[in-house]
Design a protein around this nucleic acid. Structure first.
Lengths: 187, 187
DNA sequence: CAAAGCATGTAAATAGTTACATGATTTA
DNA sequence: TAAATCATGTAACTATTTACATGCTTTG
């Protein structure tokens, strides 16, 4: 019932101009999803939550027969957001990657199968880099030109992260190609 | 009811010698938790699941009055694990980091507050590096000497990742110190 | 104008965390 | 020997995903 990280993501996007659940979803998909996933049902239920708490105010604005609600921050909502942004409690970074997990247990596998996984990791990093370079960064640069600078900074974090991962995968791929079983870690 | 990633983590640790839920927890805390979190209740319920499915076999081995169950892989369990390890479906890397989220929305904050967050990110990376260097890597090297090479490889991934993050934080810290508001992304 | 995709959600199922309980073992 | 910590779990709560429903808009 209380507020959680998701609440502040929703408040944050409302603050910079999103009005509907769908607009929040679009904005999140193009930016924050790389370090915080948020699915549509979470957004919509969070909006209801926040309205009950008086942090957003919604009004009905149907498109024809289709129901539709637009929201805006209240003064209390803006304040709650800024207070949260100021807080500096311990914050845990969490990574979940089934691919690394498979690699962790890969000693149970014949060497031939393992190289394939590493190649898949490399390709995944390449795909992500494309997404960043074609979609995420250009959009963040626009935002930057509009006077909001931190979306570009955090997007560059994502971009740099995947560049690092690509490099790591390539190095491991090379080492495995040289000496299939006794690989030795890259570094 | 079906098997999920957690199932295979449990099978994987049983395969390399863990016998109880607690031993699995200990092993996971010292290795896979950096790319796959798994809490005690998940482990215990997963063990029951796997037993029903015939992939592990458990027997009671109480310590005094305290109940206690030890498990081992069945042949079917070993096979299920290896089949999963071989599979190469699409695998999504997921990151969740409230600190990056705060940084993303930091344009709503006075510049003074922001530097503190970046410093906290740097210190977090430093702490993680210590954990890797003092605990995780030494243990993985032991495992490596015992003929299992992939735990060291994946642990090196974690180590390298946090080294990269430390570098990124330090660079951003410097740029913010120079020009507080108009920061420009590190890269 | 039919099909595909965009926009707007909800219900039900699954996954995961928190808080607790309890006995054994170690340590101050 | 009391307090702390290790070991072994469970119940209840919270968070998240999946699958669906439905009307509007664009496009072949």
């Amino acid at each position: 019932m209380g507020l959680c990280v998701n609440s502040y993501v929703v408040l944050g996007f409302l603050r910079v101009g999103a009005r509907s659940g769908y607009e929040i979803k679009r904005a999140a998909d193009a930016s924050t999803r790389f370090f915080w996933v948020l699915s549509p049902p979470q957004i919509y239920s969070e909006l209801n939550n926040l309205e009950e708490a008086g942090l957003v105010k919604g009004h009905s604005e149907p498109r024809g027969e289709r129901a539709r609600r637009l929201f805006e921050l209240t003064a209390a909502g803006e304040e709650a957001l800024v207070e949260w942004l100021k807080e500096s409690g311990p914050m845990n970074l969490e990574v979940r990657d089934p691919a690394l997990l498979k690699l962790f247990f890969a000693d149970a596998l014949p060497p031939g199968e393992i190289l394939g996984h590493v190649q898949a990791m490399r390709r995944r990093a390449e795909r992500m880099l494309e997404v960043f370079e074609q979609d995420i960064l250009p959009l963040a640069e626009q935002t930057d030109a509009n006077g909001m600078h931190y979306p570009l900074i955090t997007s560059s974090f994502g971009h740099g992260l995947y560049k690092w991962m690509l490099q790591w995968s390539v190095e491991l791929e090379r080492k495995l190609a040289d000496t299939p079983v006794r690989a030795g870690a890259p570094e």
